[in-house]
Design a protein around this nucleic acid. Structure first.
Lengths: 212, 212
DNA sequence: TCCTTGATGTCAGCAACTGACATCACCATA
DNA sequence: TATGGTGATGTCAGTTGCTGACATCAAGGA
């Protein structure tokens, strides 16, 4: 197994995170990352297709988890509920490394190239979730929208979780986001949404802040 | 005004689209684009920050339209309805250039870098829409989710519109997507969603195919 | 002991992008 | 009408991300 120093991949990832925090994304060079990991630029590109990719190696694992969770759910579960519970099944992963998640998120938020990469990873998750739903007989358009809605809930809940000074659990934030989404989409869509809608959203907001 | 050949920007955009279609994105070089437009690589980078950006100059305009439409809507309108109608206000732009939209979409779909860029543009639209909603007094979490839901509907409707052999209008596809989203999020979220949900989505699917 | 194998290094090269400076067409205005 | 300013473009050199081709080197097996 280990003829050279082991865990080259992990070493590269850690070196990258450190340098991104120290110098920022643009000013850290791939050569620098590799050097800190005791490797060569060329080797970096054997592990990661991209300079960006070094921050996203976990997403493959995440995708697998989500797919499995959707497939394991009882087939009678409503599409969006399948997705929501699958996403909730992934929360322990993040909960274990809250501090790391914060740092990583700060780095990503600071650079557009990284935000792009994150978005496409999330889109990929949505695509995988939609495919899983279709496998269970959900119609394609329904599956797509349920998956995208689920991912929106995930993103939203994740953001609130990372910023939450009270450190309430991620799953609670995600549930709150889901409730909120349901409230938002519950409107009539056409006739006289006057007071009713306004009240609904106000009530929802308060309720969210209490329950999370 | 025009001392040199006018419309350098437009020339670059057109040259880029042509070359992307002829050679694909990776095999066309910025130098090649500039040459076809009668300009220099350096000049290309004065108009576009990126090789990718040459395909997305319209998004600023789109963002402006959406913001205006949201701000003009009556303040009693529900958040998601504001967003939906704002998006619908943009449909004529696409409807005018359906053929172009198809080509462009094919180019983007074929290359990950371009898909990333498109995703961040859409995220930017969602952010702008959310900001507009907040300006009207909508609570932040509600605004975010309404905006994201709206964008999901937009994407979804757009995809269906582009692929629709019957060439039904974009706005109809978007309305259908919105209905579908409402159906998907209408579930209970917890207790015995058995038959009920399944039936709902099936009914929804049929209704969609008929009404669009 | 030799040979295979997989991880790494070396080197050359292209293309995306940037900064600094030059040029050139037009316009105003003296 | 000459002159000088201005904004769009060109030129050039340089960095960095990324790739292909080939060399090397440390195990482990025949």
């Amino acid at each position: 197994m280990g003829r050279w120093e082991p865990n080259a991949r992990a070493r590269l990832e850690q070196a990258a995170m450190e340098l991104f925090q120290e110098l920022g994304y643009t000013r850290t060079t791939v050569e620098g990352i590799a050097a800190r990991a005791g490797l060569t630029e060329r080797t970096f590109f054997r592990y990661f297709t991209d300079k960006r990719e070094v921050l996203f190696s976990g997403s493959a694992n995440l995708e697998k988890l989500i797919i499995e969770a959707i497939e394991e759910a009882p087939k009678t579960t409503a599409p969006l509920d399948s997705v929501a519970s699958a996403l909730e099944a992934t929360t322990p992963i993040f909960e274990e490394r809250r501090a790391y998640a914060r740092k990583r998120r700060a780095v990503i938020a600071a650079h557009a190239e990284l935000r792009e990469r994150e978005l496409i990873k999330l889109a990929s998750l949505a695509g995988a979730a939609a495919a899983s739903l279709r496998k269970r007989g959900v119609a394609a358009p329904t599956a797509d929208l349920a998956a995208e809605a689920g991912i929106a809930v995930f993103r939203n809940g994740f953001e609130r979780w990372v910023d939450d000074k009270l450190q309430r659990p991620l799953s609670a934030h995600m549930q709150a986001a889901l409730k909120e989404l349901r409230a938002v989409t519950a409107g009539t869509g056409s006739s006289s949404p006057r007071r009713r809608t306004t009240n609904t959203s106000r009530r929802k907001r308060t309720r969210t802040q209490r329950s999370v």
